[in-house]
Design a binder for these strands. Structure first.
Length: 581
DNA sequence: GTAGGGTTAG
């Protein structure tokens, strides 16, 4: 009866094989080569019909190859058939099965195979646990990884290098930001038989660089070198990437008009040059990382010079190189320059993708040339490129900023009713922000409620920030506080931007003591880091109200808690000391 | 026997 439970897909294979295939002997040397999945499935079916049955090793080999072809569901179905026909599986077969479930995101089934392993009298081994661990990491269930650890300890299974590698990679990539746990793991390995390797170090170095901890990354590199493990192209790439990012603090950029005083992109360049001088292997990716660093730090001309140098040296720019440069030009509103690069890319035989179109569309929208953006959208359709949500959101934003809010709504309604690419929270936030910007806060709040009821709109903290800011600007503090309280009811957490909006409103309303209380009892107490805006709002507010001493006290209060004021606050404080304020 | 990990860019 179990046969009836086999999926239809498998049944069709079964029927086909019985009707058309002649029994063929197994390849004698037990190495298989398949033209495609059908070929592999056909052989598997012939095998389950043989008398006597081939060994489990042969079945397992084929299952392994099917998994390599990424046909996970097929492998599971074939396993079921095999088991039904009386072939006795062993640990390796089960490991393959677990891998399939992990790839399909079915961790529950993957764990249930553990029960199966024991039922068949087999023992799980380090591969079993590594496979489960990888599945947990990929499916973002890092907390359950502890289970694996406990089970391995209980069963006295030693960690090998693959297991360590899996765990380190999982920790660095986890959404919970567990890079420090990965560093700890590297340290723990010091006394073990299994030694950390270059890839493990590179994974952690990149994790640190990605999170902006460039100095820690450098320390780790030094440790690595002491242990006789030398950096390679990946290590350099991550460090250059990290340095480029370190010089780029969003709030510093916006406040200091693009002049970054703590710019590390020059250090990134030095490292890049060093890498080349040392004769290290380098490629288009290294150039792209540095070019992007220049672009994001408002040094597009430097990026362009690097682009020419790259071509002179015979390195071929790719689609990402062009997109990076186009983005750099769009950031400084030189969209025509970006367009020239776009054309240049096509002349070189490169095919623009959705991403490169999106950069240009966003660029045109930003400089309020929405017609050009719409033309590009039409181009995309002609080229059979499918626009994504970013394409549409850029257009919606462009239409709003050009004052064509009705057209923007029309587009969003089309997205909603068409259903192929429904609007997301960002789309609606763009619309809400446009309404608040032109002072239609009542309308924004009404639409906000309507969207929640009618379109199952799930607002995020940004949706609330937009509305709260709208209320504050219109001196409607009660409504702003009401919305602020709603955030927690929705299981959302206010962020530093939410607080900055409220602080700004309180300072503007001369309610400085309330602002200070908010800083001390809500922001700092809840462990939220104040940013440069927080300092400026409060320190400026206190100075403007003639309370420079309180301003200094607040600075000190934050300083001793590890929050350091930034350049702008420092300048303001210095100016005030000199009596310029 | 045979299964498991791994590093860089928009």
């Amino acid at each position: 009866m179990q046969f009836l439970k086999l999926p239809r897909l498998l049944m069709s294979h079964v029927r086909r094989i019985h009707l058309h295939s002649q029994p063929l002997p197994l390849p004698s040397e037990s190495t298989y080569r398949f033209d495609g999945i059908d070929d592999a499935v056909a052989l598997f079916h012939r095998m389950v019909d043989m008398h006597p049955l081939p060994s489990i090793v042969e079945f397992t080999k084929i299952l392994g190859m099917i998994v390599k072809m990424k046909y996970y569901a097929t492998a599971i179905n074939l396993y079921t058939l095999m088991e039904y026909r009386g072939v006795v599986p062993f640990t390796v077969t089960f490991n393959i099965l677990i891998n399939c479930f992990c790839h399909m995101g079915r961790m529950d089934f993957a764990f249930s195979v553990m029960g199966k392993i024991l039922k068949w009298g087999c023992q799980p081994n380090v591969v079993t646990f590594t496979t489960l661990m990888k599945g947990l990491c990929v499916n973002d269930k890092m907390l359950d990884a502890l289970y694996i650890y406990n089970e391995m300890v209980a069963r006295r299974i030693w960690f090998d290098d693959v297991l360590y590698g899996t765990l380190i990679n999982g920790l660095c990539k986890s959404k919970m930001g567990k890079t420090r746990a990965a560093i700890q793991l590297l340290q723990n390995m010091e006394g073990q038989l299994v030694k950390p390797n270059l890839v493990m170090y590179n994974t952690v170095v990149h994790g640190l660089c990605k999170d902006g901890h460039i100095n820690e990354a450098r320390v780790l590199c030094s440790k690595m070198i002491v242990q006789g493990i030398f950096p390679n192209i990946f290590t350099y790439s991550s460090l250059i990437y990290g340095l480029c990012r370190a010089g780029r603090r969003k709030e510093v950029r916006s406040l200091l008009n693009g002049y970054c005083l703590n710019n590390k992109v020059d250090e990134a360049r030095e490292l890049f040059n060093l890498m080349i001088e040392r004769g290290e292997q380098h490629d288009v990716i290294n150039y792209n990382i540095l070019m992007n660093g220049y672009c994001l730090n408002n040094k597009v001309s430097e990026a362009k010079r690097l682009f020419h140098r790259m071509i002179e040296r015979g390195e071929q720019p790719d689609i990402i190189t062009y997109t990076i440069l186009m983005h750099g030009y769009c950031l400084i509103d030189k969209v025509d320059e970006a367009r020239k690069l776009f054309q240049g890319m096509i002349v070189r035989g490169l095919v623009p993708d959705v991403w490169s179109y999106n950069i240009l569309i966003k660029g045109y929208c930003k400089i309020e040339r929405v017609d050009e953006a719409v033309n590009l959208l039409k181009h995309m359709f002609l080229k059979n490129l499918v626009p994504n949500i970013i394409t549409y959101n850029s257009l919606v934003d462009g239409l709003c900023k050009s004052g064509e809010i009705l057209d923007a709504w029309k587009l969003v309604d089309e997205m909603h009713y068409c259903g192929q690419l429904p609007p997301n929270v960002t789309t609606y936030n763009i619309l809400l922000e446009s309404l608040c910007r032109i002072g239609h806060v009542d309308k924004a709040i009404a639409i906000f409620k309507h969207l929640i009821f009618e379109r199952s709109f799930a607002p995020d903290v940004w949706s609330y920030n937009i509305l709260i800011s709208g209320c504050c600007k219109n001196r409607r503090m009660d409504e702003a506080m009401n919305l602020f309280n709603q955030i927690c009811f929705k299981n959302l957490v206010p962020n530093i931007v939410t607080y900055n909006i409220l602080l700004d409103a309180l300072c503007n309303g001369q309610q400085l003591d309330k602002a200070i209380a908010l800083l001390i009892y809500q922001i700092v107490d809840q462990g939220i880091s104040p940013n440069l805006h927080t300092y400026n709002i409060l320190i400026n507010g206190l100075h403007k109200s003639g309370r420079p001493k309180t301003a200094q006290k607040i600075s000190q209060y934050l300083f001793i808690r590890g929050y350091h004021p930034d350049v702008q606050t420092y300048i303001i404080n210095e100016l005030c000391k000199g009596g310029y304020c």
